[in-house]
């Protein structure tokens, strides 16, 4: 039993972390909300007049906004589908009785540990460069014209790069979950002569449902904020073709110096992310009961 004295000591130990995180959350967020109501540019007049919802109005009615929302959805959606489907397949493969499982596993999950700028530049140059890149050479082998990825299919190129980083994450999580599937359950199912397909359908898939949900939610949080991959490959272009919401806000703030408009965009991004995080928090919260 926790005594009263223990309780107060515990409060003291937890206080610094709670205080710091409270400041970390409230101060910047409060300032963003405040800035979003001002006519505030880094180059313009030094007086920042209160203009209410105007920044939001301009940010949302700018055609670039709808494009960026669409791009964000396409990027997040495609990468989620590729990484969940591919990651489940890869995890199931690695869970089979194969020789040298450890080495195969290490190779398959390695891309997750590669920093975003490296991943993006290696793909952009060594693979997707239209003259000397490996893909151009492969296309040439088949007599096909090389694809100029970043001119003609920039979004697909970005999706490939990002999916390459996140499929291994899904593999890692799902494989760990698979390996925790009770061995006795596996044996029992085989003893009962369950055909492999129904074993997979009734035992394995339900077991993967929860970790897969966790993967989806965590990836969504990270994918909504994809930045470096776009920053070093396309710079959001050509045109607006690869500008997601994060990149649009970045551009308004640090390229156009429109503090107020960028702040309004930032708040919109926060609202969108919170919708996802509510689900994730619930799911993880259930785990705390046990």
């Amino acid at each position: 039993m926790a005594t009263k004295q223990t309780q107060s000591a515990a409060r003291l130990l937890a206080a610094p972390s709670i205080g710091l995180l409270l400041i970390w959350m409230i101060v910047p967020l409060g300032l963003t909300i405040y800035d979003s109501t001002l006519n505030y540019t880094l180059q313009g007049n030094p007086v920042h007049k209160f203009i209410g919802w105007t920044n939001y109005y301009y940010f949302v009615t700018d055609p670039a906004f709808l494009t960026s929302i669409w791009n964000t959805l396409v990027l997040v959606g495609s990468v989620l589908v590729i990484s969940i489907v591919g990651g489940t397949g890869m995890a199931l493969l690695l869970d089979q009785p194969i020789f040298g499982q450890g080495a195969a596993r290490v190779m398959a999950i390695s891309p997750f540990f590669i920093m975003a700028t490296v991943a993006a530049l290696v793909w952009k140059n060594l693979f997707m460069q239209p003259v000397f890149g490996l893909f151009a050479w492969i296309a040439h082998l088949f007599g096909a014209p090389p694809i100029d990825w970043f001119t003609n299919d920039p979004m697909i190129a970005v999706i490939i790069i990002v999916a390459w980083q996140w499929l291994p994450f899904a593999t890692l999580i799902l494989l760990t979950a698979l390996q925790s599937l009770d061995l006795e359950q596996k044996d029992a199912a085989q003893m009962d002569g369950a055909p492999p397909l129904s074993y997979f359908w009734y035992l394995v898939l339900p077991h993967l449902a929860r970790p897969a949900t966790v993967v989806i939610l965590i990836e969504t949080i990270f994918l909504l904020g994809i930045f470096a991959e776009i920053f070093v490959t396309t710079g959001g272009g050509p045109g607006q073709a690869t500008t997601n919401l994060t990149f649009l806000v970045f551009r308004s703030a640090l390229r156009d110096f429109d503090v107020g408009g960028a702040a309004a965009g930032g708040i919109i991004a926060v609202v969108l992310a919170n919708i996802v995080s509510i689900f994730l928090t619930r799911l993880v919260g259930k785990n705390l009961e046990g």
Partner: peptide, 24 residues
């Protein structure tokens, strides 16, 4: 439990949402 979940939720905040004030 509430405090832990709240801490988790601060991690959910997209960095770009606070880029402007942090930068300034």
């Amino acid at each position: 439990k509430q405090i832990l979940l709240w801490m988790l939720s601060t991690k959910m905040m997209p960095a770009v949402g606070v880029l402007v004030p942090i930068y300034l």
